[in-house]
Design a protein around this nucleic acid. Structure first.
Lengths: 217, 217
DNA sequence: ATAATAGTGTCTCTCAGACATTATTTA
DNA sequence: TAAATAATGTCTGAGAGACACTATTAT
């Protein structure tokens, strides 16, 4: 181990990675010893940024290096681990179609509504990440990060419904998302059972945030 | 130094504390060596939580222990200090009337639009805290944390104007804040030049968050 | 009486939310 | 031709935003 590989003591990075699999929202966890499962994590190297650390570990486990990754919260209660550990948590969104096929070894996907037993405060961390995801979904265009580059409006709506856990009205959904101007139609259609659906694509130049309704403007 | 007072290496806590002084939003900074000013901070003790650490330091400098305090972000780029330092930043809101009168020694208040030179990435941290404060102001009732327990509607409006940096319409402001039901009138008035103004108080039982306008409901 | 500040109501326009039918394809 | 999915428009109610005058006090 060279000097550059030296790790910072008492600190690590954890990642809460979401993905839509089989019409349900899933989270990536790793099987720990006999104590149950834990969030995938990594020590912080002396010369490596926190976000890089998270991105690298995510890449190892999923094959996806370039994806939506955002710092979530830093957990540092003295009693959360022994010896004391400060965990900088990130949350990530992965499109299912880009996942590496081979199951990423110590890691596996669980539906968020059927999680296994988790060590320490990791269940709490996942719950907070999910709250944040739902909240962000309502005022930013973060939902596209869970979809392939091209998608139908029905797929997009199902994505929102899966994450929010509620049904949405099809006409209102389409009206608003089209008025928001953040997606554009392509010339292609997705064919299958029923009438073919136009494929849309996210406009990367779009304004991805919507103004919150001010309490006091 | 006992075992309990041992500090974690490579980690500290920083606080961005806001207060309204002389009709302007101010930030608390400490004079560092000759390099300029820095955010007040403290090492993390082995047996002390991150938030406690921030609250204690804030109490030392301002005399206020119980106040609004929220984790902001964790800064951990390898090049931000030497030896490497991870800073967990918090932001705090202080009501001016509860500040201890004596100037808190190495610390002083600067208006956010007239900050001195700051070391490292501390200017960036303040800028981010200010963005977060403005953003939160629009959808939560966080602004009351900067006011005394009783206040007039004009004082409240000026608070919002100072933080947002823009003028607001008096009638619309009053209509919305009263409709929101988060404040209630008291029987007292504040007298002075001009017509006396009714004093209001924040309703701690009020719902302090407003639903953001969904992008896709 | 004058200067200063507090307090109040209406109109317009946009958008959220509820709601049902037609269109196009495959099996 | 039946089953499946895609696509589309209207009405109503709530609230944002623009706007000007009256009320009450101290000096």
């Amino acid at each position: 181990m060279s000097l550059m590989d030296e790790v910072l003591p008492h600190v690590d990075v954890r990642v809460v990675a979401f993905c839509l699999l089989k019409e349900r929202l899933h989270v990536l966890v790793c099987s720990a010893s006999a104590n149950g499962y834990e969030l995938p994590g990594a020590p912080v190297l002396l010369n490596c940024s926190l976000e890089e650390t998270a991105a690298r570990r995510l890449g190892e486990l999923t094959g996806i290096r370039e994806t939506y990754l955002e710092q979530l919260y830093t957990y540092g209660e003295p009693q959360r681990a022994n010896p004391r550990l400060i965990s900088v948590a990130y949350f990530a969104l992965l499109p299912a179609n880009r996942l590496s096929k081979t199951p990423p070894h110590p890691a596996c996907w669980f539906a968020v509504d059927a999680l296994p037993a988790l060590t320490g405060d990791h269940a709490e961390i996942i719950a907070y990440a999910l709250r944040r995801l739902r909240y962000k979904l309502e005022y930013s265009a973060v939902g596209f990060q869970l979809l392939p580059e091209r998608f139908t409006l029905s797929e997009l709506q199902r994505t929102y419904e899966m994450i929010l856990g509620e049904k949405l009205d099809k006409r209102n959904f389409r009206r608003r998302i089209l008025r928001a101007g953040i997606i554009e139609p392509t010339t292609e259609c997705r064919t299958g059972e029923g009438r073919p659906a136009r494929l849309y694509r996210y406009r990367p130049d779009a304004v991805a945030e919507v103004k919150a309704r001010r309490l006091f403007p």
